[in-house]
Design a binder for these strands. Structure first.
Lengths: 199, 199
DNA sequence: TACATTTGCTTAACGGTGTTAGATTATTTT
DNA sequence: AAAATAATCTAACACCGTTAAGCAAATGTA
């Protein structure tokens, strides 16, 4: 009786449908417009159905957050693989991070709480740690001092992250930002931080 | 009959009471716990009363935002006045900005949409432009090139702001950040950006 | 003083939210 | 075909922001 697997597949489809519907609503109408009933409408069910796939709304958002980190991780890895020089790898990776923030603006807001109240416990998501590891390793390759101190990597990683996340946040919340200045700050900061890695 | 003035004063008191109550609730229970009914309870009225002082909840939040910018502006000005050297003034000002973010965490979240969905139209608040002007002028003092190009000031201002706001945001949303590393990044970045002002 | 009017405030409601329990329908098992 | 199980919906709860209607006390007017 292979119907068990078919039902399983159907369940996974509706689960995926819920997540997709949620993301579509958010992309078209913003985070404020997202409600359980509206998701249910989109998948042609009633709201309580969603609770058979997710414990509650926050659980659903956590899953979306996870997906976001998975996508971001892939983009960063791909950017890294597109270059051979460690410095250029690192720059490409942060540029991929930057592009993700604007291409998947809603996901980025959710993942990092930009103009939106993101879920607790998003700390210690394994998917999030993957991107951290990618960046840390890429920075590590640029450290010449031996033995390579862990502190320096952490310090530089957070410095990169601060300036880029900060610039993204400002762009997503404040209106009237200049794209040319964005690029100048972005490239300038990345280059400057790379140069100071071995001070 | 001076009762008109007394009534006026009472009205201003309750208006202030509403704002204070809102801030107290947020400080004790977080932004999610803030509701019109809870504010009304705190000031021993019922919810509709609030609508005689503010058009709606967003209007109330905008007023709180304004207060936040006013406080922040004062702190930054005070920091500037505490130093005489332009470079040290600028550093002191950004350190004041940093301290405000953690001393008035809830206000900062509201003003800049950190882990909270902040109100629209917070662009073009005159109170917000004051701090921008303070920083711009302080940077201007450090530019030696003549004529001082407006671009450079804008660029450097956003660079400062990005790294500091980014670091603040990360600290406010992510758990388990290291205070020593924070200070290293903060001071390091400020010094580094100051050094590059006249490149 | 007596009546009318305004003011201050509350109660009640509307439509929305996330969420849960109970009833109902459909499917599968016996 | 009957019983058991699964899938789904309806209805409700408690909350939210917000508005309209009503009440009661204070004020103005005759």
């Amino acid at each position: 009786m292979g119907s068990k697997e078919r039902i399983q597949r159907q369940k996974e489809d509706t689960r995926k449908g819920i997540l997709d519907a949620a993301l579509q609503i958010v992309k078209h109408e913003g985070w404020n417009a997202l409600s359980m009933r509206k998701i249910a409408d989109a998948i042609e069910y009633t709201a309580p159905i969603i609770y058979e796939y997710f414990p509650n709304k926050e659980g659903l958002l956590i899953e979306l957050t996870r997906q976001g980190y998975a996508i971001l991780g892939k983009k960063i890895k791909k950017a890294q693989d597109s270059e051979t020089e460690p410095a250029q790898q690192l720059e490409a990776m942060w540029m991929a991070y930057w592009q993700f923030a604007f291409n998947c603006k809603e996901m980025y807001q959710l993942m990092y709480g930009v103009d939106m109240n993101c879920c607790e416990l998003k700390k210690s998501l394994p998917e999030a740690e993957y991107t951290t590891k990618l960046f840390s390793d890429a920075i590590d390759k640029l450290v010449t001092k031996e033995p390579r101190p862990e502190d320096i990597i952490c310090l530089k990683y957070y410095t990169f992250w601060s300036v880029i996340h900060g610039l993204i946040s400002i762009n997503l919340t404040q209106k009237g930002t200049n794209e040319e200045i964005n690029q100048q700050i972005l490239r300038g900061a990345i280059q400057a931080i790379i140069r100071t890695i071995n001070d």
